[in-house]
Each structure stands twice: as structure tokens, then as C-alpha cells.
């Protein structure tokens, strides 16, 4: 095992390009994650060196100085060696210097505040049990679960919590920062490559902590403008009058859509176009999955996300027809951008 471990460490470095591009720390997709990945690489390299030296000495002495059967000799009782002790004090200090300097540079580099930068997009993130709200303060629009950002700008985040502590983390774009109730944290990220990235809650927040994912979608600047326009456009209500009424009375008491409803629960504008339902049921697994997912979610949300505040269909007194109607409407509610 001791021989295998350094090999595994080396292997790990080789493998480091791997992992899902939308999820892995080792496959950075933006400059923030890249800087952090560079630091990880420096530290792994230094540390691999240390590990190799220690393992080598360890294996050597264990083989070379093992006691032969019946050996009664008493080895020389050495008290110590000043030269050696100075070496293994100074060398680690030097190694730490190599790691310490870029660490400090990056700490201050990543702490730059873009909250007053007019060229940046400002997003206020509010974490709640168990979903994420994204408010675009420059545009006066709010969405949930799926963050949409342009690929050409810095995104200045303001992080807050509506209840307990959560932590905002998009591994392949940049490291995490906690959302503390009562305090506001700031960070910036960049999403130069278009695509959809997986975000996670990284602070234990209750039973559905594991299911508190979100998505970050990076789109072209033109596409982003179209998205903003579509978000600001009047809401599209269900065509069927009964479903529309049900939706208005049962759903919009907590949710919002376009200019209607309240933001006590995730904003549903264009919800059918999102990657997931409830941030955990994926819509791309098969055609028509979105509608099934909505049906599943509306019928019994506790089964999907234990501890969520969303009431079940039974609590809402929804008939199967109404559930189907709502699911169909929501799955079909997509924005063009």
C-alpha cells in the first residue's frame, strides 16, 4: 500500500484533467476556478514531493533496519543531529514560501469588489430552504434555480440567506462562499465559455441539503439580452381558463410569474425551459420528461425534496386533471433566448 500511494498521487495528477466539465474542480471553465486550480496544482506538486521523500526514507529504514531473529545487539543511542534538524526545519519553510506567495496574491486577487462596476452584471443571490433566488438588480428581474449570465462580463454576486446558512458553489467556475443570515457577502465570477454548469449548496442546511442544487447558464451577450427582454415581457398564462384560475389561486399565492404573484417561492417565469424541475429532477433524460417531472413534483414534493415548504397536491386540493394541466402548462412554458 505504501508503495502504491505515491503512484496513486501521480495518477491523480494525470487524471486531473478529468471529471465533468460542468461540475469538476479539476476541470476549470472560468478564470476564477482556473486561478484556484493553479494553486491546487502548485500545492499538490510540493506536497507530492514531501510525500515521496517521506515514503522513500520510511520504506528504506523499515527494510534496512528490521531486526533479524535472535538479534540482541543494542544500536547506538543517538541523541540527535543539529545539521539534519536545521535542514528539515528550513526546507519546509522554503517550500511554504513557494506556496504562500501565490496564496496571498490570489486571496487578494479574488477579493476584488465589482459591486460598483458598471460593466459588471449584478446579481443578488438569496438562498432559501431549499432553493436559490437570483435577483438582477440592474434589470429588475428575478429568477430562481437557474442563473443566466452573459459570457462576456464579470458577474458581481451579493450573497444573502433568507433562513439558515447555505453556501454558494459552482465547482467548475469558482470556489464557494457562504450565505449568512443577517450578513451580506460579495464575490465575483466569470463564465467565459457558454454552457450550463452545476451549482451546489455546500453548507449543511437541513434534510434536503444534498438536493439543493442549481444551474448556472452562460449564454452569448445577444442571447442574454433576449433573455432579459423575455423575462420582462408579460407572463403567459395557461390557455385553459380553469387551469389558469387554479394556477392563479393555488400557485401564485407563493410563486411569481412575469409581473404576477409574489416571490415567496421560486419564480416560475420560463420554468419549462430550465434544466430541471425542483433543481433535482432532470428534464433531458427523455422526451416528455419535463411534464412527468412537474407531475411528480406537484403531486408530492416531500417525496422529491424532504422538508421543502411546497405543499403537496393533496394539501392544495388539486384534482388529477388539474395536476396534468398544470404540469403540461409549466413544461411548455419556455422563453426564447
Amino acid at each position: 500500500m505504501k508503495r502504491i500511494l505515491p503512484l496513486l498521487t501521480g495518477l491523480a495528477l494525470l487524471l486531473s484533467g478529468c471529471g465533468r466539465a460542468d461540475l469538476s474542480v479539476l476541470n476549470p471553465q472560468g478564470p476564477v476556478a482556473q486561478k484556484q486550480y493553479d494553486l491546487i496544482k502548485i500545492s499538490i506538486s510540493i506536497m507530492a514531493l514531501v510525500v515521496v521523500v517521506v515514503f522513500a526514507i520510511c520504506i528504506y529504514v523499515l527494510i534496512r533496519y528490521r531486526r533479524r531473529p535472535g538479534d540482541k545487539t543494542i544500536p547506538k543511542q543517538v541523541e540527535g543531529n543539529h545539521t539534519l534538524e536545521i535542514i528539515w526545519t528550513v526546507v519546509p519553510l522554503l517550500l511554504l514560501l513557494i506556496l504562500g506567495v501565490p496564496t496571498i496574491q490570489t486571496v487578494f486577487g479574488l477579493a476584488k469588489d465589482y459591486s460598483h462596476d458598471k460593466n459588471a452584471i449584478h446579481v443578488k443571490v438569496t438562498s432559501r430552504l431549499y432553493w436559490w433566488e437570483f435577483e438582477y438588480t440592474d434589470y429588475g428581474i428575478t429568477t430562481a434555480q437557474q442563473l443566466v449570465v452573459p459570457s462576456n462580463k464579470k458577474i458581481a454576486f451579493e450573497l444573502a440567506s433568507g433562513d439558515v446558512k447555505h453556501s454558494f458553489w459552482i465547482p467548475s467556475i469558482g470556489g464557494k462562499l457562504d450565505t449568512n443570515p443577517g450578513l451580506t457577502n460579495r464575490m465575483y465570477l466569470e463564465f467565459p465559455k457558454e454552457g450550463i454548469y452545476r451549482g451546489k449548496c455546500a453548507e449543511l442546511c437541513g434534510p434536503s441539503h444534498a438536493l439543493m442544487d442549481f444551474k448556472a447558464q452562460s449564454v452569448s451577450p445577444a442571447s442574454f439580452d433576449r433573455w432579459v427582454a423575455a423575462m420582462k415581457a408579460p407572463a403567459v398564462m395557461p390557455a385553459d381558463a380553469h387551469i389558469a384560475e387554479t394556477f392563479r389561486s393555488k400557485c401564485l399565492s407563493c410563486h411569481a410569474i412575469g409581473d404576477q404573484g409574489t416571490n415567496g417561492a421560486p419564480n416560475l417565469t420560463g420554468v419549462g425551459g430550465r434544466e430541471t424541475v425542483g433543481s433535482i429532477l432532470y428534464n433531458d433524460v427523455s422526451p416528455g420528461a419535463a411534464e412527468d417531472n412537474f407531475r411528480k413534483w406537484i403531486t408530492d414534493p416531500q417525496k422529491v425534496k424532504p422538508g421543502t415548504t411546497m405543499p403537496s397536491a393533496a394539501d392544495n386540493q388539486l384534482t388529477p386533471d388539474e395536476i396534468n394541466g398544470l404540469a403540461k402548462y409549466l413544461a411548455g412554458y419556455k422563453l426564447n433566448y
Binding site: 474542480v25 476556478a33 486561478k35 484556484q36 486550480y37 494553486l39 491546487i40 500545492s43 499538490i44 510540493i46 506536497m47 514531501v50 510525500v51 511554504l96 506556496l99 496564496t103 490570489t106 486571496v107 486577487g109 479574488l110 453556501s167 465547482p171 469558482g174 470556489g175 464557494k176 462562499l177 455546500a202 453548507e203
Partner: peptide
């Protein structure tokens, strides 16, 4: 111990933390 030193580097820890 060496992963401890890796964790000590704050910007890298933004990635490691709570994982």
C-alpha cells in the same frame, strides 16, 4: 498533513471547503 497544508491556502480552500 500535506492535505492540511493544501487546505491552508485560502483561495484553493474555497474549492475544498465543505466537500
Amino acid at each position: 498533513g500535506v492535505t492540511g497544508v493544501m487546505l491552508a491556502s485560502a483561495p484553493a480552500d474555497y474549492q475544498y471547503h465543505d466537500t
